[in-house]
Amino acid sequence: MKLPNIISGLLIMLVSGFFYAQTYQFPKVKLEEIGPAVMPRIYAAILFILGGIVVVQGLMAKKREEEENEKTLGYAVISMVFVLVFLILIPVIGFYISTALLVVGLLLFSKVRNYILLISVPVGTVLFIYVCFEKLLKVAIPAGSLFS
């Protein structure tokens, strides 16, 4: 946990420092004793200090522990990229087609080659969302700019 602690601690310090600075950009109001900026400033300051503690903890940690599943991290990140592409596609080609694409894509990625699953899972998911969310709950599922 040596390196991750140092990085995450620094990240926390950076973000909280940014938020702290931002509180000085708030519009001024005269109405109150404790203004809108007070609490965020306290939170950000405490976070900054705690971030520092995590950095120190990282520096004090003796040896870099063995990262057991460093290899598999790649798979999680790739699946995140899949979802990101899916989210970008929704406004363009609509929710249903993107859903089918994401499901098939992830299935293929996880080495599913069974044709029955490759067809039934995306179709089933789309149908379920259509019936439950669009029809019963009247959620306005995005159709995509290509089709509207």
Binding site: S79, V83, F86, L87, F95, T99, L102, V103, L106, L107, S110, K111, V112, L117, V121, T125, I129, F133, L137, V139, I141, P142
Partner: peptide
């Protein structure tokens, strides 16, 4: 392998709705 994509879709539609 089957459940994960479905969960991700449900997360999306759940957050959206």
């Amino acid at each position: 392998a089957v459940l994960t994509p479905i969960i991700l879709i449900l997360c999306t539609v759940g957050a959206y709705s």
